[in-house]
């Protein structure tokens, strides 16, 4: 609706200031997940995407452009999010993306907007109490292409790792007994445990997985605005509200 071919132009002029373009177009386009519970999940009946990431993105749009309706969402997958940012299809990625040194070479990150840590989900009464119990012969379920599957290989080198397309598929595998534990970020595991009382988190989180909002490399003006917005929503209570709505816990300090 009324687009001025801005996407095509942006990809050619990589030096162009994204923040200025956002203000010119009066909209900000976020790349989000549509199949991840709690963070970004499409609602089949309304077609709307809902979740923690979405609510944070809306508040950022409100702080930068004055109206949360000026946030637009485009679906990304773990494979497409960085190329779409580089091509100018999206202005920023808010898609459960962990800040890593490797990724910092390709994109710039905002401050941490969600402090996640990798944990284990097991059936109640399981012998596995922590990551140390995952020895030879035990099977861990993880999600493909995520940092969590690399981490578990380092923390439990003896265990075999089975990888699935997404969390729901991995959890189905856990329930059908294809593995002893499911590993991923704790926030997602809390969601699963909350709706399925036979399963619980075990042990302390064994990694530090800070989620960040990614912008195109060199777009420091936009990164600064996003950081200011995150700071503002943490101080005025909007952040805590969103956190409780989705994670069902108080944000840990």
């Amino acid at each position: 609706c009324g687009s001025k071919g801005s996407n095509g132009e942006a990809s050619k002029e990589s030096k162009k200031d994204t923040l200025a373009a956002i203000k010119d177009n009066d909209k900000i386009v976020f790349g989000v997940k549509t199949d991840t519970r709690l963070f970004g999940l499409k609602n089949p009946s309304s077609g709307e995407i809902e979740g923690f990431d979405i609510d944070i993105a809306k508040q950022i749009a409100k702080d930068i452009l004055g109206d949360e309706k000026k946030a637009q969402f485009k679906e990304v997958t773990s494979k497409t999010r960085i190329p779409m940012l580089q091509n100018g299809d999206i202005d920023a990625i808010v898609a459960t993306m962990t800040i890593t040194e490797e990724r910092k070479k390709e994109v710039d990150f905002s401050d941490v907007y969600f402090e996640a840590g990798q944990s284990l989900l097991v059936k109640k009464g399981s012998k596995i109490k922590s990551v140390e119990n995952l020895g030879k012969g035990s099977k861990v379920l993880a999600v493909k292409g995520s940092t969590s599957s690399q981490n578990i290989r380092e923390k439990a080198p003896e265990a075999s790792v089975l990888e699935f397309e997404n969390y729901a598929e991995a959890f189905t595998a856990l329930k059908s007994g294809q593995g002893d534990a499911l590993t991923t970020d704790n926030a997602i595991l809390y969601g699963m445990a909350d709706e399925n009382k036979n399963y619980q988190l075990t042990g302390k989180p064994f990694t530090d997985e800070p989620y960040g909002i990614a912008v195109k490399k060199g777009q420091s003006a936009l990164a600064k605005e996003i950081n200011a917005s995150l700071k503002k929503m943490k101080s005025d209570g909007r952040y805590d509200e969103i956190y409780k709505k989705w994670i069902k816990e108080d944000p840990a300090e």
């Binding site: 199949d35 089949p44 497409t80 729901a168 699963m192 909350d194 709706e195 399925n196």
Partner: peptide, 26 residues
């Protein structure tokens, strides 16, 4: 589905994501 084409498998995955415990999968 890897480039997020909203085809049959893609939409099935989203429906699958509606349940926390994967009970829609099968």
């Amino acid at each position: 589905v890897v480039i997020a084409l909203p085809e049959l498998i893609h939409n099935a995955q989203i429906i699958n994501g509606q349940s926390a415990d994967g009970s829609y999968f099968f």
